[in-house]
């Protein structure tokens, strides 16, 4: 690791102040837990002249019941989220995803917003400066060729945040603040399938909170595969939410992370409604196979990650059916 670059550290007291500070410099970045950002800064992946510490903004740290669901401030830590009784009771996929991010010392400071805005990752990008220079750089940073897909005109770095699929299967809405005011959108629309500009956020915009509707009888779970179970980013992670209708599927939502440049909520699962468990598993297998487009972004092969995604998704559906 290289030393941190020089920067000034700002500590705004409100979302408005933070957004104004971000708009003032093209090389300003928001700093939450810093567990990913500081390591990336030391690898020379990000140019920065100002860090805006979000730790002193009370609005971002609120977590509690809202309407008939829950509202989660972007500054809530993963440790707090995993331990929250309403999250554990009504949104188990989210509690499981939060409890499984990295190690305990990371989760104590890492935040919901940080995990949702996590930089995309690739074996050609998350390397030291000299390694990347020795390999003529890549499309995501300072190069003109994607090393994963040599003829591609886009970057395939993979999104690896654990919370996004868990929030997506529960229908999360993202609240965003910017210099022009506030807006909200379904969480899935926060992401683009481009590893460089993977967030649909203007440079001055800040993710403020997530809102979840009432769980309404949905059972959910999250499971992932990684090399070192204590700490690594997911090779693949799957969230499933299921509403049973007797012995048949009432509603089934499945979303994955670690597979593409965005968290992917699988489309077309309405056809599973009314199917028995076993019939639904066969059709789900086909639907997921068609939509997974993972590339060789990890040291572990795309083929393995693809098979693992299918196994984990089907295992979760079986587990939730039996619950």
């Amino acid at each position: 690791m290289e030393p941190l670059p020089d920067f000034q550290l700002l500590k705004p007291r409100s979302v408005a102040e933070a957004v104004t500070a971000r708009a003032a410099s093209a090389h300003a970045r928001f700093l939450a837990g810093g567990t990913d950002l500081l390591a990336n800064l030391r690898s020379g992946l990000i140019e920065v002249d100002t860090l805006i510490d979000l730790g002193a903004i009370p609005e971002l740290h609120r977590l509690g019941a809202h309407a008939d669901g829950i509202r989660i401030g972007a500054g809530v830590t993963l440790e707090e989220l995993a331990a929250h009784p309403q999250v554990a009771r009504d949104y188990p996929a989210l509690a499981q995803a939060a409890a499984g991010v990295a190690g305990p010392t990371h989760r104590a400071v890492a935040t919901v917003g940080g995990n949702l805005c996590l930089d995309t990752r690739c074996r050609f990008y998350n390397q030291s400066e000299w390694w990347r220079a020795g390999n003529q750089h890549c499309l995501k940073l300072a190069g003109d060729t994607c090393r994963v897909a040599l003829k591609a005109d886009r970057c395939y770095a993979a999104f690896s945040g654990d919370l996004a699929p868990a929030l997506m299967v529960h229908g999360a809405i993202a609240e965003i603040a910017g210099a022009q005011g506030r807006r909200e959108l379904p969480l899935g629309e926060l992401y683009t399938d481009e590893g460089r500009a993977y967030l649909n956020l203007a440079p001055h915009e800040l993710l403020v909170a997530l809102r979840l509707p009432a769980a309404g009888g949905l059972r959910s779970g999250y499971e992932k595969i990684r090399i070192r179970a204590a700490i690594d980013f997911p090779l693949t992670g799957v969230a499933v939410a299921l509403r049973r209708d007797g012995e048949r599927v009432g509603e089934l939502c499945v979303a994955a992370t670690g597979t593409e440049s965005r968290p992917l909520r699988f489309a077309g699962l309405e056809v599973l409604q009314g199917m028995t468990r076993d019939a639904a598993l066969v059709t789900l297998d086909k639907l997921i196979r068609k939509q997974l487009g993972m590339m060789e972004t990890h040291l572990v092969s795309a083929g393995y990650r693809r098979r693992a995604t299918l196994v984990v998704a089907k295992r979760l559906v079986q587990r939730l059916f039996a619950a």
Partner: peptide, 9 residues
């Protein structure tokens, strides 16, 4: 509480 001092300003 335990903190990673290499990731803390």
């Amino acid at each position: 509480k335990p903190r990673l001092s290499c990731l803390t300003l």
